[in-house]
Simulated assay, not measured.
Amino acid sequence: MPTYIALLRGINVGGHKKVKMDRLKEIFSSIGFEQVRTYIQSGNVIFETRPLETSELIQQIESQLKEALEFEVPVIVKTAEEWKTAIGANPFDVDLLKEDEKLHVSFLAEKPSTEAVEKLLSVESDIDDFQIEGKTAYIVCRKGYKKTVFSNTFIEKKLKVAATTRNWNSVMKIAEMSK
């Protein structure tokens, strides 16, 4: 059975939309997914199920989450292979980052238009570097993610697509868990 990674946007942030990971595992298992596991409290769920289109998985997950939690949770789903591809497409050499520099990855719900990408790439920052590859954006933050111009909200507004961001350590841990 294929492995999928569901990234839930906006749960357990600033005390809002609190969801315990055990509850999240129960919800995903109730859909019929197998080998359900979570990583940290920010809504990362790795699971297995029969091959399905990601759009169908998203619909099932979002519907079940709304019913169980009584609030909407936007979800982005990636296959384990897409996750691996995103890691391989990283244009930044993580080993060359200084101690206070951190890499973040924004996973996009869909591929943005060429015009939107060009508009985003025209934004300049004195402290951060940014690249986009297909449905993934890579941000090197030199003063911390809270101070970056390229926040998740900024990326969504500029690209006009839903996104959710994870730090590189989480990306790598999720990759390990999805093997």
Rank of each mutant, 00 (worst) to 15 (best):
M1Q: 01
M1V: 04
P2R: 08
P2F: 06
I5A: 04
I5Y: 00
A6N: 05
L7K: 02
I11C: 06
I11S: 07
N12C: 06
N12M: 10
V13S: 05
K18Y: 00
K18W: 00
F28S: 02
F28E: 03
R37H: 01
Y39P: 01
I40V: 13
Q41P: 03
S42A: 13
S42K: 01
G43N: 05
N44E: 04
V45R: 00
T49S: 15
R50N: 14
E56V: 15
I58S: 06
I58L: 10
I61M: 03
E62Q: 15
L65S: 09
E67F: 03
A68F: 00
L69D: 02
L69I: 12
L69F: 06
F71A: 14
E72R: 09
V75S: 06
V77L: 03
K84G: 09
K84F: 05
A86L: 08
A89E: 15
P91M: 11
E101A: 05
K102P: 00
L103A: 07
H104V: 15
H104G: 03
H104A: 13
L108F: 09
L108Y: 04
A109G: 15
A109E: 11
E110K: 13
P112I: 13
A116M: 09
E118V: 05
L120F: 07
L121C: 12
E124L: 04
E124T: 09
S125Y: 01
Q131I: 07
Q131N: 11
I132E: 04
E133C: 08
R142T: 11
K143M: 13
K146A: 15
T148G: 04
T148W: 03
V149M: 11
F154M: 15
K158N: 10
L159H: 05
K160R: 13
V161Q: 07
A163M: 13
A175F: 12
E176P: 02
M177G: 07
